[in-house]
Nucleic acid binder design. Structure first.
Lengths: 363, 363
DNA sequence: CGGTGTCATGACATCGGTGTCATTAGTTCA
DNA sequence: TGAACTAATGACACCGATGTCATGACACCG
């Protein structure tokens, strides 16, 4: 591979002059510049970032740690490809910056993280983003104090700068949109209570009801006892939960599910039980998982998780920290997402009274 | 960031001795070694790959060009996440090699490829893998002759080493498994004729029939006129195609679809028309797209596309070429995949005669 | 006891760029 | 016309590792 010295020799100038032509950081005579460019083309010269990095002490690299690549395909319990969307956002935002992204995949094993960070430090990355597959708390090994770090879709105790989805606002807006369509008996079959997202969304659910003066009915809030799985047992549990709320004296007119996947399974279950969607019952999901929301019939109303935006925001933050133009936020940055309306929610023509259960007799 | 000189000073030895401790390439007294390691720990020293790379002229980097990260989430017409699975395989195989993977995403724009290759060359990658999202021909800009290159899931005119799915064998095996279950009237609703995969799979389909002496019936082979899309028109076209083969004087007992996604849509269509699966009709897909095959009821029989294996094979090939231990193959390397059986194919109790159409009267 | 070998270590050059400073030529202005 | 300045270029050191060669201390052998 040709070096700057080769170019200098061919062009009949000093290496430093070639460097000046490459970087345009000092005036070079037009004639000289042309000679240099000719030599560069002739030799197919490409400057070495390694040498540059060494001299300038700036690698131009940013590290990304994720499980998105290895995990997404096989885990069937997930709701879309959250971390992959985030990585996508990061890529997009990073492109513009001129920095090179180094992606390391954990392969799902958290104990590989220290090793990956080590490799990044050997490459002298200027910053580091850790992407989690769902909103949760993490605990990462310490990194060199000179390396900036940002957490995406997760947070830690150490107060590392982080960017999170606004789960509270998301569920609030979703429920609010249902209320706007005339629904007042709104059931919520949530995900596991253990999840950060669940805690926040339940709060959003309750507050949205409270905001319009609907009394919260505990019977309508069913937290998943177990993760809804693929197998028959999972289907049974889901049906039990649905059956329970639909058998209430005042059944709901709409059920919000913890995620789109759960809603998708519910479609099949409800349909096999003869419940027409959305005429007999309205349904909403969560995640805005396009593959599901758009493919289902009727299309599914959902709250979009702003994954790409989280990635973009995290990147902007990191780049700002690297340049010193952004100061480190002390609180997590919350990113909100819109409600994506589908046809799974029926417009109730007139406000339904508390005692109404029209249409539920078909069950 | 501490350097090897800092470590040397603290340990009271020469930088070269520190280097020897780090690399273990020459004997160092136990006492000295301990002093050095202590200094390393104390200073939190991490060697710089940039400096190493410069001296050794080996970057330890391998470049990967793909559209997997940016594209997979949004394209709904796809059949799984082919390129992502391949990337996954590459990651796994690369891990063991100790090299660092540099992933660049095209963002779907082929015209960005030269730029990405340029960046890789600046980083002096030792090798380069290009991953396509489906089996096809590509034409890439030339790379420096010193940089090894491998194509995964694609091939070119220049005879660049490539690794491809064995589409011929896949369809052959799939059809063969149907024949083994007693089917003899086997329809094939293929994907677009333009696709490399289609050409090969059609050949596999025909040969599988021929191998057991079943005469090929052109009426049973329906190439998709257009890509099957999400909208109503797409559904209509798919239904028309299905309707056409089922209306034949001797209708098929099983339909093979071009991919799992098409089969999934067919499930909905057939069911809404009152066709019971697999009792009235058997169905098979292609791709082995778990999310679909396992989720559908009944589970879908499919031919697995060995994406991860392609990635692994491509990586092994590239690493071999870099080490000089593998010689460059002149023909594409074909990787086969198994048939993943589901419940969508009925076991026909006895060989069906050519005139039989039992069970089709329900249509 | 001197010659030869091995062990352990260090001095120094080198990889390919760029920052610093020096140098030369030409220009401007008092 | 000479001092002061700018434009254009080069010489040289340096970034942080490691390869090569040299050196000093022992051990071993005849």
């Amino acid at each position: 591979m040709a070096t700057i010295y080769d170019v200098a020799r061919v062009a009949g100038v000093s290496p430093k002059t070639v460097s000046r032509v490459l970087n345009g950081d000092a005036p070079v005579k037009k004639h000289t510049k042309e000679a240099v460019n000719k030599a560069i083309a002739e030799l197919g010269y490409v400057p070495s970032t390694a040498a540059r990095a060494m001299r300038s002490n700036k690698s131009g690299l940013v590290g990304l740690i994720t499980g998105a690549i290895s995990l997404s395909p096989n885990r069937s319990e997930n709701s879309g490809l959250p971390d992959l969307y985030i990585v996508q956002g990061i890529q997009r935002a990073m492109e513009a910056s001129g920095k090179t992204l180094l992606i390391a995949d954990t392969g799902g094993k958290m104990n590989r993280v220290p090793q990956l960070i080590r490799t990044f430090e050997e490459h002298r990355v200027e910053g580091l983003i850790y992407v989690a597959d769902h909103h949760r708390e993490v605990s990462l090994p310490p990194v060199s104090s000179t390396t900036k770090m940002v957490l995406a879709n997760c947070f830690d105790q150490k107060g590392t700068p982080s960017v999170l989805p606004n789960d509270y606002q998301g569920q609030f807006n979703l429920v609010n949109s249902l209320i706007a369509k005339g629904h007042r008996r709104i059931a919520y079959l949530a995900l596991s209570r253990q999840l950060e997202a669940t805690k926040l969304r339940v709060a959003g659910y309750k507050d949205a009801l409270a905001a319009v003066g609907i009394k919260f009915d505990p019977a309508l809030l069913v937290p998943a006892e177990v993760d809804v799985s693929e197998d028959d047992a999972g289907v049974q549990l889901l049906w039990d939960a649905i059956d329970r709320v639909l058998s209430l004296p005042e059944p709901p007119t709409v059920i919000c599910f913890g995620n789109d996947r759960m809603a998708m399974r519910a479609y099949g279950i409800l349909r096999s039980r003869g419940v027409a969607l959305p005429d007999d019952l309205s349904v909403a999901g969560y995640d805005g998982h396009r593959l599901i929301t758009d493919t289902l019939y009727p299309t599914l109303t959902s709250a979009e998780l702003p994954y790409a935006a989280i990635g973009i925001r995290a990147t902007e933050l990191l780049l700002g920290m690297i340049n010193g133009t952004a100061d480190v936020p002390t609180k997590p940055i919350l990113v909100g997402g819109p409600v994506t309306p589908g046809n799974s929610v029926k417009d109730l023509p007139s406000p339904i009274t508390h005692l109404s259960s029209i249409g539920r007799t078909t069950l």
